[in-house]
């Protein structure tokens, strides 16, 4: 049976039974023969592009829709990303971390994000640098990006994000709560001590005896956030 053959292929490729059931469940509307052909075709293509089998298994687990894209789409997306200013190796690495990029429109989504970040004051080179460090910037809504950057701008540390884009992973709620916590202790966060905002929870709790949940409840970001102006009003 074609399904058994497909499962055997995927097991040999590096997926386990649970992964296989999960991925196949995404494509219940497709003919098994077509699906088998697609999966093999795309795996082969991705290998020729430079991904290892292990990379591909991880990408498919992270983003089960991977096998819904055409070979043409996959190749074109890589070319389109290179036209934006990334090297080939950059693109391969970015997509490895964010395979969902195959689903994002270059014009409506990715270029629009770049445009929005230019309007926030970053240079084109800054944006390329930031997205290489943290490809998931392309998955964030622009509302999310703007809120985070505005928060760090109010703290006068938004420029550090060019070198430390991974700090954008941290939620506004936590960054704000920590900022206010330090402020109430007489410590103003600036470009010299900003790493204090981003220390891990265990270390923070060890130093100050308070966990993230309690901290976020003490300093409620939403209470300070003005929906009308889209800015913080009482930092």
């Amino acid at each position: 049976m074609i399904v058994d053959e497909l499962k055997r292929y995927m097991l040999e490729y590096g997926f386990n039974n649970e992964d296989i059931n999960k991925i196949l469940a995404v494509y219940t509307f497709k003919e098994n023969e077509i699906l088998f052909f697609n999966i093999k075709k795309i795996n082969t293509l991705l290998e020729t592009l430079g991904y290892t089998q292990n990379d591909i298994v991880k990408m498919a687990k992270r983003f089960p829709l991977l096998y819904s894209y055409s070979m043409k789409n996959i190749k074109q997306k890589i070319k389109d990303m290179q036209k934006l200013g990334y090297s080939y190796n950059d693109v391969i690495k970015i997509i490895k971390q964010l395979p969902a990029i195959y689903g994002y429109s270059i014009e409506e989504n990715i270029k629009q994000k770049i445009k929005d970040m230019l309007e926030l004051g970053y240079s084109y080179n800054d944006i390329i640098k930031m997205t290489k460090q943290l490809p998931s910037i392309y998955s964030y809504s622009i509302e999310n990006i703007k809120q985070k950057i505005e928060l760090y701008r109010l703290m006068n540390i938004s420029h550090i994000l060019v070198e430390k884009a991974t700090y954008l992973m941290q939620s506004c709620e936590l960054s704000f709560a920590r900022y206010m916590f330090y402020k109430n202790k007489g410590i103003i966060i600036d470009e010299n001590n900003y790493p204090k905002l981003f220390i891990d929870q265990l270390k923070f709790k060890r130093l100050y005896g308070i966990d993230n949940k309690t901290l976020i409840q003490m300093y409620n970001y939403d209470e300070y956030f003005s929906k009308e102006k889209n800015v913080l009003i009482k930092i």
């Binding site: 998955s139 939620s171 709620e173 976020i216």
Partner: peptide
């Protein structure tokens, strides 16, 4: 994990994972 809402907000693709993972 206490702030699961913030975890998913930071990495929405975690929602594609199953408990076995």
């Amino acid at each position: 994990i206490v702030n699961i809402n913030l975890l998913f907000d930071s990495n929405p693709f975690l929602l594609n994972r199953d408990s076995y993972e």
